[in-house]
């Protein structure tokens, strides 16, 4: 049995808005084993990016725990957290916005090293920067280039090098390829997978693109309006999706086959995440919805080992 590296328990993040509390992340529990990749999928606005940010403490959680090797990092003070950041890094979504336009490539990659003081000596830092650029496949003549001089793929490589520079164990990838050309997406994805193998990294991979998540993930969590509605291994999820929302998502994947019948397309709007009423959040778009779905929060069922789903259809003894 491999070690659990990161675990969340009852993680919640509410934002105060003028119309009430916005439930961005509402009670998410999952765990990631060391060296594995957990894919988080969901449509825009379902709280998947917020989840990543809360785990790295870029925004403060409202409630819950984030365990790293069994210790709750949300209770850490400033200094301890700085140490923690050496272990947990992030790759951002938009390579055009995630690099400071006034810093050169080498400055950007050296920044976390300098702040966290993993290396002190200037020449050592330079060597590390060089090494990282090499690892992500950036040519050495770019050390003094500015981000605006480079294309999206190269910029995202800088983002990856910056995350890797302090030798982390866990990386949150927040839609790292969704802003890139399809041809470059594959390059970056393959690079991320190679790096995982080489450095034994653990990923939490946030995306809305199911084909990407299938390609890279060991486990997949499906999020809908701040909640994790289904969690299972990647293979199981694609072979036997349980939650009606997951089924609808998989049906919506375009197939390069003219005879392929499109499944039912979801109708209706996403319910507002502001002060949602208790019950299944998906009920108003779900064809199986009935009274049992409303009024009370849906517990997590486990109809098959290692396959969790938040839906009353799988209540013990039902059907």
């Amino acid at each position: 049995m491999t070690q659990l590296l990161v675990e969340t328990r009852g993680l919640r993040k509410y934002f105060n808005t003028s119309r009430g509390k916005l439930h961005a992340v509402d009670g998410v529990d999952f765990s990631i084993e060391e060296g594995k990749t957990l894919g988080i999928v969901g449509e825009s606005g379902c709280g998947k990016s917020t989840l990543g940010r809360v785990i790295l403490r870029l925004t403060d959680a409202t409630e819950g725990e984030v365990l790293y090797q069994g210790k709750d990092i949300l209770t850490y003070g400033r200094k301890k957290m700085l140490d923690m950041r050496k272990k947990m890094q992030m790759i951002f979504q938009d390579p055009y916005a995630s690099l400071n336009p006034r810093m050169t490539v080498s400055e950007i990659i050296a920044e976390p090293i300098r702040i966290m003081k993993t290396l002190e000596d200037k020449q050592q830092i330079n060597r590390r920067v060089y090494q990282m650029m090499n690892v992500v496949g950036l040519s050495g003549r770019l050390v003094n280039a500015y981000p605006h001089e480079l294309d999206g793929g190269r910029r995202q490589r800088i983002g990856v090098a910056r995350a890797l520079a302090v030798d982390p164990a866990f990386i949150v990838c927040d839609e790292p390829v969704s802003a890139l050309d399809v041809s470059i997406q594959a390059q970056i994805l393959n690079m991320l997978m190679d790096l995982q193998e080489e450095f034994g990294l653990t990923y939490m991979f946030i995306t809305h693109d199911l084909s990407v998540v299938k390609h890279i993930s060991d486990d997949i969590g499906v999020m809908y309006l701040g909640q994790c509605v289904e969690l299972s291994s990647s293979r199981q999820l694609f072979e036997r999706p349980l939650h009606p929302y997951t089924q609808a998502l998989l049906d919506a994947i375009p197939m390069p086959d003219p005879d392929h019948a499109m499944g039912e397309i979801l109708k209706g709007e996403v319910t507002s995440p502001i002060e949602p009423s208790p019950g299944c959040r998906f009920a108003n778009r779900c064809k199986h919805a009935h009274e049992a779905c409303l009024g009370q929060d849906i517990p997590v069922y486990q109809p098959f080992p290692g396959h969790q789903v938040k839906c009353v259809l799988y209540q013990e003894g039902a059907e």
């Binding site: 790295l56 870029l58 950041r85 916005a97 400071n100 920044e111 976390p112 702040i115 983002g159």
Partner: peptide, 25 residues
Amino acid sequence: NEYIEAAKASGLGTFRIISKYVLPN
């Protein structure tokens, strides 16, 4: 901008984020 968040993830303190990332831009 995301680079402000990236700076936080790199462990920069508030003062350095303002002086090195926010004000120059």
